[in-house]
Simulated assay, not measured.
Amino acid sequence: MSWHRRPLVGFDVETSGIDPETSRIVTGCVVRFGGGQPSTARSWLSDAGGVEIPAEATAVHGITTGRARSAGRPAPAVIAEITAALAEAADTGLPIVAMNAQFDLTLLDREARRYGIRPLFDRAVPCVIDPRVLDKKVDRFRRGSRTLTDLCRHYVVQLDEAHTAEADAVAACAVTWKLANRYQWLKRLDLANLHEQQVHWAREQAEGLRDHFARTDGKQELAASVRLDWPLVPAPRAGAYP
Rank of each mutant, 00 (worst) to 15 (best):
Q205D: 08
V170I: 13
A169R: 04
R143S: 15
A165M: 01
Q205G: 06
V170T: 10
D160R: 12
H154S: 03
A174N: 01
A169M: 00
W185N: 06
C152S: 00
T176F: 07
K187A: 14
G208N: 06
R210T: 00
E161Y: 14
C173Q: 09
D211E: 13
A171F: 08
D190C: 10
Q184I: 06
V156T: 14
H163P: 04
L194T: 03
R143I: 15
A192V: 14
L151Y: 01
G144D: 12
V156D: 15
Y155W: 11
K187G: 08
A167I: 05
A169L: 02
D217R: 01
D168N: 05
E204I: 03
Q184R: 11
A169P: 01
A169Q: 05
T164H: 12
N181W: 12
L189S: 13
A214E: 10
Y183P: 04
L148G: 06
K178G: 00
A172Q: 00
D190R: 06
R182A: 12
A202N: 05
D190N: 14
Q197C: 12
C173Y: 10
K187E: 14
E166W: 02
S145K: 15
L209I: 12
H195T: 01
L194G: 02
H195R: 03
A167E: 08
E196N: 12
E161R: 13
A192G: 08
T164Y: 07
W185G: 02
D160M: 13
L191K: 02
E196V: 04
C173A: 12
Y183D: 00
N181P: 03
F213M: 06
A172P: 00
A202W: 06
T216V: 03
E204R: 02
Q197F: 07
A214V: 04
L209W: 11
A171L: 00
D217H: 08
K187F: 09
G144I: 11
Q205T: 05
V175F: 08
R215C: 02
E161N: 11
E204D: 09
H195G: 02
D168F: 13
A171N: 01
E161G: 03
Q184M: 05
L179T: 00
Q205A: 09
L194A: 07
Q198K: 01
R188W: 14
H195D: 07
L148M: 13
H212C: 07
R203A: 03
R210Y: 08
V156G: 06
T149H: 14
R153S: 09
R153E: 14
A162T: 00
T176N: 00
T216K: 01
C173R: 02
R210H: 08
Q158L: 15
L151M: 07
T147V: 08
L186K: 01
W185Q: 09
F213T: 01
Q184P: 00
R210S: 11
N193E: 15
D190L: 12
T147G: 14
V170M: 13
A206M: 07
V156K: 11
L191Q: 05
